[in-house]
Each structure stands twice: as C-alpha cells, then as structure tokens.
C-alpha cells in the first residue's frame, strides 16, 4: 500500500500497528531506560499501548482526531508517571489539531506533530538539547512542516528519518530532566528512551503507509 492520504479506518489501522510495534519493543525500550533511568520506560509504554490497542479495538470513533485523542487518553490514564503525561499529551494535543480533517494527509501530519510538540513542551518544559522526547519530536515536526505538500509516504519517510537522527543526537546530550539528570555525564552515549519510543512510533506509521 502506498498512499497520498488515509481515511479514518486506515488511521485506526495505522495506530493499531503503532501499538503493536511499541508493545513488541518493550525489551529494547527497557534496556535503553536501564542505561539512563530506572528501567521501567518499556513496561510503561507497553502498558500504555496495550490500553490504547484495546481502545482502538472498541472502535466507534466519529473522526480521525477523536481516534488520535483516544490513544492519548488511554496512554495517559493507564501509564501515569512522566511518560504517561508526555505521550498522552503528545497524542491528545496532536489529535486536537486535526479536528475537521476527513483525511490524514501530509498537511494533517504536520499539524498533528506541531501541536504534539507544542503540547509536550508546554507540559514538560523541555527544550531541544535536554535529552528528552523533544529531541526526536521537534525535528520531526519541523520536517513535517517542510514536507506538507509531498505525498504522505514521502513525508513520513523524511519525518521518520528526522526523528531517528534526533534520537541519535540525544546520545551526546547531558540530561536536564528526570532520573537521567542525576547521572550527569554518565548518560552520555545512550539515547533518551522517550526519544527512542517516539522514533519507533513514526517508524511504525511510515511502515503502515509504505510497507
């Protein structure tokens, strides 16, 4: 499947794929977090995405924005902690920004990521360079804004690449938030676990559109 845009049903399918990807990635996310945090990020994301998958299976979403927001609410409510607040806000805020979109195209992707990034930064107060999810999310949102006229598969390709480089760049950063902060230089060399989660999320979105 190679697509210019997705309808509601396809968005739900894509999100289900995102859930599967993160649930299956629990070991690598936990490992990433053990290097710089307390090692529970993978378990938390797995819990959140399992709840989101159940919500998606219930169905009955009137629109694309509501489906995205439902993922956010399910994650926030089932995870708790900093990750629940951040990833919940990412999907909820991003989802709100695509209200009225009947199709999820590159323009909607750009609006989703812009609002997601703004929401996460407003909630967590992190800037680029602080070794958080923002290091993958902000470049992804920027790339999406640049490619909003391109077909969705092209845009998602570039966005996934931007998120991946952002995640890689987080390896050299000294953490300013969370438990990793207390490691100081000790966390250098390891990527931020949240940035890794986000890069996997956009990879799964890309893989759905361009298998």
């Amino acid at each position: 499947m190679s697509k210019e845009s997705l309808n509601l049903e396809e968005v739900v399918e894509m999100l289900d794929g995102v859930c599967d990807k993160i649930i299956a990635s629990e070991p690598i996310l936990s490992e990433a977090d053990r290097n710089i945090g307390d090692g529970d990020h993978g378990l938390g994301m797995q819990r959140g995405m399992t709840a989101a998958k159940e919500k998606l299976a219930e169905g009955g979403f009137p629109s694309i924005d509501k489906a995205l927001m439902a993922v956010g609410m399910a994650m926030m409510s089932s995870m708790g902690g900093a990750s629940g607040a951040i990833f919940g806000t990412l999907f909820s805020n991003g989802g709100k920004a695509v209200a009225g979109c009947e199709n999820f195209d590159s323009k909607a992707l750009a609006a989703f990521l812009k609002a997601a990034c703004e929401g996460v930064q407003a909630r967590g107060k992190a800037e680029v360079g602080d070794k958080t999810v923002v290091d993958a999310l902000a470049p992804a949102a920027e790339k999406a804004a640049e490619t909003e006229a391109a077909p969705l598969e092209e845009a998602l390709d570039s966005v996934a690449e931007a998120a991946e480089s952002g995640k890689e760049a987080s390896k050299d950063m000294v953490a300013k938030f969370g438990r990793a902060k207390s490691l100081g230089d000790g966390a250098v060399g390891h990527p931020d676990a949240g940035a890794l989660s986000f890069s996997l999320i956009v990879q799964a979105m890309r893989d759905y559109v361009k298998p």
Binding site: D40, S77, G80, A85
Partner: peptide
C-alpha cells in the same frame, strides 16, 4: 496513588 514508582495519572 500511582503505579509502582510512577506518578498517578490525571484522572486519578
């Protein structure tokens, strides 16, 4: 109350 070592979510 949150889960083990995790803050309670907003709905709680």
């Amino acid at each position: 109350c949150g889960d083990i070592f995790a803050a309670p979510p907003p709905d709680i």
